[in-house]
C-alpha cells in the first residue's frame, strides 16, 4: 500500500502512513487497513476513507499520539496509525 501510494500519487510523500505525519499537520484518510490492531474501533471513531485528520500532540514517550478527528480528540498507538494511509492536504 505504501509503495502504491508513492508512485500513483505522482509526487513523493503525498501519501504516507498516519504515523509518519508530523505533529501539527493535517491530512485526509485514503485507506484503513483491516490489519490495524484496533481496526473496528478506528472505524467507529469516524476514521474512514475521506476523513480529515490532524496530528495534535504526542504523549510523553512519543507514542501514542493524539489526533483530531471530526471534532473529537482520539489517541492512537503507532501500530494503528501505521495502518492508516493518509494524503497530505494542508500544503
Amino acid at each position: 500500500m505504501l509503495a502504491i501510494g508513492y508512485y500513483i500519487g505522482g509526487e513523493a510523500m503525498s501519501i504516507l502512513p498516519l504515523a509518519s505525519l508530523p505533529v501539527g499537520r493535517e491530512a485526509t484518510v485514503r485507506y484503513v487497513s483491516p490489519d490495524a490492531p484496533s481496526y473496528r474501533r478506528i472505524l467507529d471513531l469516524g476514521l474512514v476513507g475521506g476523513t480529515k485528520v490532524k496530528v495534535i500532540r504526542s504523549s510523553p514517550f512519543g507514542d501514542p499520539r493524539a489526533y483530531l478527528v471530526r471534532g473529537a480528540v482520539v489517541a492512537l498507538r503507532r501500530e494503528d496509525a501505521q495502518a492508516i494511509m493518509v494524503e497530505v492536504t494542508d500544503e
Binding site: P37, S38, R41, V73, V74, A75, L76, E79
Partner: peptide
C-alpha cells in the same frame, strides 16, 4: 499473544 491496538477518545 499479539498486542492489540489502542484507540481511545480523549474528551475535553
Amino acid at each position: 499473544g499479539v498486542p492489540s491496538g489502542f484507540a481511545l477518545e480523549i474528551p475535553p
